[in-house]
Simulated scan of single mutants.
Amino acid sequence: MDSETRRFRTGDRDVVLDITRECAEFAASRGDGLLHVFVPHATAGLAILETGSGSDDDLIAALGDLLPADDRWRHRHGTPGHGRSHVMPALVPPYATVPVLGGRLALGTWQSICLVDLNVDNHDREVRLSFLTSA
């Protein structure tokens, strides 16, 4: 298994960050297999969705409706609503696996791999990219 960690800056607001290009670069010379993407953070997740047409904003809005940034959360350190960031990975998991064929991500026409981060207290994220091939 080939594996490496990439760093991303998500900033100080809720974000859906498209990381497809970096994932494609990692998989480009590796032939056929599976790209496994993992976020080793308790407050971030990965989603495969269409970006740029409003779906990314819709995801942020839906998560805001489901997980409001208020004082209802028992996990209370950090900014108000920080506890919601610890619940989010149950809805947007911290991993995704994508087939790779001939060194190209086998995503659908409108699909992108996105880092989802509601934690405004942590601006820097690591994403582990691992390439698995069959023996």
Rank of each mutant, 00 (worst) to 15 (best):
M1Q: 09
S3E: 14
E4K: 14
E4Q: 15
E4I: 13
T5I: 14
T5S: 14
R6F: 02
F8T: 05
F8I: 06
R9Q: 12
R9K: 13
R9G: 06
G11T: 08
D14K: 01
D14L: 04
V15S: 05
V15M: 04
V16S: 03
L17P: 00
D18E: 03
D18R: 02
T20R: 04
R21L: 06
C23N: 04
A24S: 13
A24R: 07
F26Q: 01
F26T: 06
A27T: 04
A28G: 03
A28E: 14
A28R: 14
S29P: 00
R30W: 05
G31I: 11
D32M: 09
D32C: 06
D32K: 07
G33P: 08
L35C: 10
V37P: 08
F38A: 06
V39D: 07
V39C: 14
P40L: 06
T43M: 10
T43K: 11
G45F: 12
G45A: 14
L46E: 04
A47V: 05
L49D: 03
G52M: 03
S53E: 13
G54K: 01
G54V: 01
S55C: 10
S55Y: 02
D56S: 03
D56V: 01
D58N: 04
D58Q: 04
D58H: 01
L59C: 05
L59K: 05
L59I: 07
I60P: 01
A61P: 02
L63M: 13
D65N: 02
L66H: 08
L66W: 05
P68K: 03
A69I: 06
D70W: 10
D71V: 04
W73K: 08
R74I: 09
R74P: 00
H75M: 10
H77M: 07
T79V: 14
P80R: 13
H82K: 10
H82S: 11
G83N: 08
S85Q: 05
H86T: 08
M88F: 09
M88H: 10
P89N: 11
P89G: 13
P89Q: 12
A90D: 04
A90W: 03
A90N: 06
V92S: 08
P94A: 15
Y95K: 08
T97I: 06
T97S: 15
L101F: 13
G102R: 10
R104G: 04
L107R: 09
G108E: 10
G108K: 11
T109P: 08
W110R: 10
W110E: 13
Q111C: 11
S112H: 14
I113A: 11
C114A: 12
C114M: 05
L115R: 02
L115Q: 05
V120F: 03
D121K: 09
D121V: 10
H123E: 13
H123W: 00
R125L: 06
L132S: 03
T133Q: 15
T133W: 10
S134G: 14
A135M: 02
A135V: 12
